[in-house]
C-alpha cells in the first residue's frame, strides 16, 4: 500500500470559515479537523447554526459570497489541497470529484428543465460522456431506483414525488462517479418510510469507494447509517469517534445531552432535539469552552480557557472534564 492509498480520501485541517457581516464577524466554522476514508460514511451532527452546512460548502469552496470567506485551513482531497486550486480548477472538482445533495428536493431542482437535462448536466460539463448521454442518464436514474427511468427523464421535477425528487438529486450527485459525497440533511424534508428507503440507497452507494459526509439533525439516522460521527457545536467539532464509542460512552457533556434528549422510539419524529439553555450567539460566542453556559459541570477553568482537542483511543473531544462512560449528566 502506498502512502497516497493509505491517506484518507478527505482530510480537513484547521478549517475556518467566517462571515463578515455588518453586525460583526460570525465564525461559522472555527478550527475544524476531520477525515473521511474511502467507502466510509461519516455523520455530522449539531444544532441549527452550528456550522454543518458551511463545512460542506467550504469543501466545495462555495461559501456564500461576499460575506463568507474561508480564512484558513487545508482541505486535502486525495493529496490535493482544494483551497490551493484556482476557481477554474475547482469547477472541475465540483460535481465530478465532490458532489453534494441539498436538503430540500423541492427547491433544489430547477422547475423549468426536465429531469433528464438536469441529471445529464454534470456529465456534459465534465465531458464524462463516453457514448450515449441518454444512456448514462438512464443508468444514473436506475442506480437510484427510479422506476421507468427511460421515460421519466422527459418529465419535469413537479411531476415527481418528494422522495423521488430526492432520488433524482442523488442521481445528479452520482452521475459523474464522484469520490466524495456531501449530503446536507437530505432526508429532513421526507417522511419516515421514504427516509428509510433513502438511507438504504445511501448504503448501496457507498459500496465501492465512495466516501460520504452525512449531515443530519437526527441521531437515529447516525446510528443506523454512519461509521463515525462528528459532533459540532458553535463552529467547532466538540467530539468525534466511531458511532459505537460515541453513543455508548460520550465524553463531551454536549454529546451526552444530545443522546439523552433523543425521544424514545415510536415518538413521531426524532429530530430537532432540545437541550437546556440558549444556543450561543454566533456573533459573540462565550469565552472559554463554548458550551460552558449550558454545561451542568462547568467550572472556572471552562469559563476561562478553550479546551484543545484531546484524543483517547479512537475518540477525540474538546472538554476539560470529559465524562467517563457515563451516558447522562445530572443537571
Amino acid at each position: 500500500m502506498t502512502a497516497a492509498e493509505r491517506a484518507p480520501l478527505l482530510q480537513v485541517r484547521d478549517l475556518r470559515t467566517y462571515f463578515y457581516t455588518r453586525a460583526g464577524v460570525v465564525k461559522a466554522v472555527d478550527g475544524v479537523d476531520f477525515a473521511v476514508q474511502r467507502g466510509e460514511i461519516v455523520g455530522l451532527v449539531g444544532e441549527s447554526g452550528s456550522g454543518k452546512s458551511n463545512v460542506c460548502l467550504s469543501i466545495l469552496n462555495l461559501v456564500p459570497k461576499p460575506a463568507g470567506r474561508i480564512v484558513s485551513g487545508e482541505i486535502v482531497l486525495e493529496g490535493t489541497n482544494l483551497l490551493g486550486l484556482s476557481e477554474r480548477a475547482m469547477r472541475t472538482v465540483r460535481g465530478r470529484d465532490v458532489a453534494m445533495i441539498l436538503q430540500d428536493p423541492l427547491s433544489s431542482l430547477n422547475p423549468v428543465f426536465t429531469v433528464g437535462d438536469q441529471v445529464g448536466e454534470a456529465l456534459r460539463v465534465h465531458g464524462r460522456v463516453s457514448g450515449d448521454l441518454r444512456e448514462r442518464v438512464i443508468g444514473a436514474l436506475q442506480k437510484v431506483h427510479i422506476p421507468g427511468a427511460s421515460t421519466r427523464l422527459r418529465d419535469y421535477p413537479h411531476q415527481f414525488s418528494g422522495g423521488m425528487r430526492q432520488r433524482v438529486m442523488a442521481a445528479i450527485a452520482i452521475s459523474c462517479a464522484p469520490k466524495l459525497l456531501l449530503a446536507d440533511e437530505p432526508t429532513t424534508a421526507l417522511d419516515v418510510t421514504i427516509q428509510a428507503q433513502f438511507l438504504q440507497l445511501m448504503r448501496e452507494l457507498r459500496e465501492g469507494d465512495l466516501g460520504i459526509l452525512y449531515v443530519t439533525h437526527d441521531l437515529g439516522v447516525v446510528a443506523q447509517l454512519c461509521d463515525r460521527v462528528l459532533v459540532m457545536y458553535a463552529g467547532q467539532i466538540v467530539e468525534s469517534g466511531t458511532v459505537e464509542q460515541v453513543f455508548h460512552a460520550p465524553r463531551h457533556p454536549y454529546t451526552a445531552a444530545l443522546i439523552s434528549s433523543v425521544p424514545v422510539l415510536g415518538a413521531k419524529r426524532r429530530r430537532l432535539y432540545q437541550i437546556e439553555g440558549q444556543p450561543p450567539n454566533p456573533l459573540a460566542p462565550p469565552a472559554g469552552c463554548r458550551f460552558h453556559p449550558r454545561c451542568p459541570q462547568a467550572d472556572d477553568q471552562c469559563r476561562a480557557a478553550m479546551p484543545e482537542p484531546a484524543t483517547d483511543g479512537n475518540v477525540t473531544y474538546r472538554c476539560w472534564h470529559p465524562l467517563n462512560g457515563r451516558l447522562s449528566v445530572t443537571p
Partner: peptide
C-alpha cells in the same frame, strides 16, 4: 434559489 446553488455544485461556469 437552491437550484442555483446546485448548478454551482455541479461545476457549471457562473455564466452558464
Amino acid at each position: 434559489a437552491d437550484y442555483i446553488r446546485l448548478a454551482h455544485i455541479k461545476g457549471l461556469h457562473p455564466f452558464k
